[in-house]
Write a protein that binds this DNA or RNA. Structure first.
Lengths: 353, 353
DNA sequence: TTGAAAGCGATACCAG
DNA sequence: CTGGTATCGCTTTCAA
């Protein structure tokens, strides 16, 4: 009744085993592994042979206790958001080939932000990328005292952590100028209801503020509708809005997922983007699909992810502590969903009466 | 010139600090944290107060050296695949509220599979979910000797690890029966070129085999086209196929992303799904979008992710070592992309000549 | 250049 | 029920 021989009991070799096999000391093996200074060629080859033979791989947990874990944490508020996927892809690609492994920790439902970031910090990641818009700057400052942190998306004037953002004012301006050039005057803005805290510097707040500023400057009505983060929310709100107010000829959505919801609402109402133009934000992959063809402001999510990794590695390898704030210039991708304005209100009576 | 006082040097409290503050031993603190047997209420409250006061959180790296890391590793071959997102969501949701944290490690480009799984194992995850189709069963068996492993997607007759699959034969049958009922006889199959190893039990191989079997049984031609994993590949191949062979009235794509590429090819050729029906596999979110409306076989990715976590936790908590093989029953979602067969070859001469 | 030994921060056993 | 102590696998002094 050996309790070991069956499946489930394979002890992996430790550094001691390697040292024994190579006839050297533990410390020597450690040095070889870390390419540290002070090992002879003879010793190096002997150790490397032993490592190969035993199939030895160091345990990160043990390394992490003294040195580094060679892991980078990426906290994302949720899964299934295409813009976040862009960021993940950019970060993963930037990290590829290095000795670091990207560990993505998703929030789920209400459980996101602080607890997830803490979980990553508890796992001794060497650096941390945060996306959650809900964590307060003060809390992040404290966390950033402990390990290198880069925040994506929010325009914080941080001192201990870096930020990667896009110029939301410029992006919103691109979208609205575009719609105005097409002749639109009744332009609604669909945005998300934010938590009151830290709202000021959130991207969507900035887009909203810019929208209100621009419409006011142009003497246009400010038509703002709030919804949740999901496509379905946007669908419901947009559907109601479009059928309630036929004077609206264009909708600027806070991000593409909301915009897709708007497109669905249009389709279900028997309307097209010839009736109501739609412009989104993020330029997710789906926006470029010919069956969707959504005009959108690109903020280059992949690049944001890559830059975040770069900033983090810079802090890790050079020990930089002064904050850097990187801002990306957004670009407008014009597609079929934004077209010249055309009145929806009694079109036949327009010239007649 | 204190090298410490500035940003970057915040030592987090250790268990020793807590013990000192509470006036008890380290071991006692450990017990309280783990809800272990044998601690008085008085001691518990004193320790808990100290923990709260110091803001103590245990370091996982240290815990992992003796006990568990409370981390579950999820290896995914790449990002941006919607079906994989479903799996991630299911797994994350199932794990929510537990004391475990999901760590997602994505492959990137050529670097996926074994090295990523090793990275997770090296980080002492308590259990591992693997999706990579390219890792050999033998290698996985060895890995599974070390820690609990669940493989998603492949029909391996494993002995040391569990599997979660969907019935690809049934799913393919659903799709093809559906198309045949609609009157289609020239049905092409678009699939991915697989690595020769371990190909036999891969989902896509099974779908292909079933396709060949069914067309042969029905006396139909087997029309198989291969492409890469991406939408663009499918687009190019489908476009070429459709224009080369006008007799084809339906395409069964290996998965939805390929199917979306096919839809794009149709649109660009000035055709619609009235001309060529399309059925996919996976039922990704986009398939249900009214502007896409893709008929698809659902294999319930979220459920697969949730089951994988369940199996893993079962192994972890009960110590089960006997392999379990869970199979999901797929269902067909009929949408607008599959319609009654209609000849594309000289339709006007059909009744005439 | 190399080896021996002292930690890192937790867990787990064993006396009291 | 509680406190000491060995221990996990690695890094890092410090002598030799």
């Amino acid at each position: 009744m050996g309790s070991d021989a069956s499946a489930g009991a394979a002890r992996r070799p430790s550094m001691d085993d390697v040292a024994r096999a190579a006839g050297v000391s533990k410390g020597a093996v450690s040095k070889v592994i870390r390419n540290a200074y002070g090992v002879s060629d003879a010793m190096r080859t002997r150790v490397e042979d032993a490592i190969r033979e035993l199939g030895y791989r160091p345990r990160i947990a043990a390394r992490a206790m003294r040195g580094s874990s060679f892991s980078i944490g990426l906290e994302i508020p949720n899964l299934g958001n295409d813009f976040l996927t862009q960021i993940m892809q950019g970060a993963a690609a930037q990290l590829a080939g290095s000795s670091y492994q990207l560990m993505i920790a998703p929030g789920i439902g209400e459980l996101s932000g602080e607890p997830v970031l803490e979980n990553l910090a508890d796992r001794q990641v060497d650096g941390l990328i945060a996306i959650s818009p809900e964590v307060t700057p003060a809390w992040l400052e404290t966390l950033a005292l402990e390990l290198p942190v880069v925040l994506i998306g929010r325009h914080d004037a941080s001192v201990n952590y870096d930020t990667v953002t896009n110029d939301d004012v410029a992006g919103t301006t691109l979208a609205l100028d575009h719609l105005r050039t097409l002749g639109h005057e009744r332009i609604a803005h669909l945005t998300m209801r934010m938590q009151p805290e830290a709202q000021a510097r959130a991207p969507h707040s900035l887009r909203l503020l810019t929208y209100e500023q621009m419409t006011a400057d142009a003497g246009l009505d400010s038509i703002v509708e709030y919804c949740g983060d999901a496509q379905d929310d946007a669908y419901a709100v947009a559907r109601e809005l479009i059928s309630r107010d036929p004077s609206i000829t264009a909708i600027f959505a806070g991000h593409d997922t909301l915009a897709i919801g708007v497109l669905r609402a249009l389709a279900d109402l028997g309307l097209t983007t010839k009736d109501v133009s739609v412009v989104g934000y993020d330029d997710i992959q789906l926006a470029g699909h010919p069956m969707v063809s959504l005009s959108s402001v690109s903020q280059f999510g992949e690049k944001m992810g890559a830059i975040a990794i770069e900033l983090l590695m810079e802090r890790i390898s050079t020990g930089r502590t002064a904050a850097r704030h990187y801002q990306i210039h957004p670009e407008l991708r014009v597609r079929a969903s934004s077209q010249a304005a055309r009145s929806r209100t009694r079109p036949e009576s327009r010239t007649g009466s």
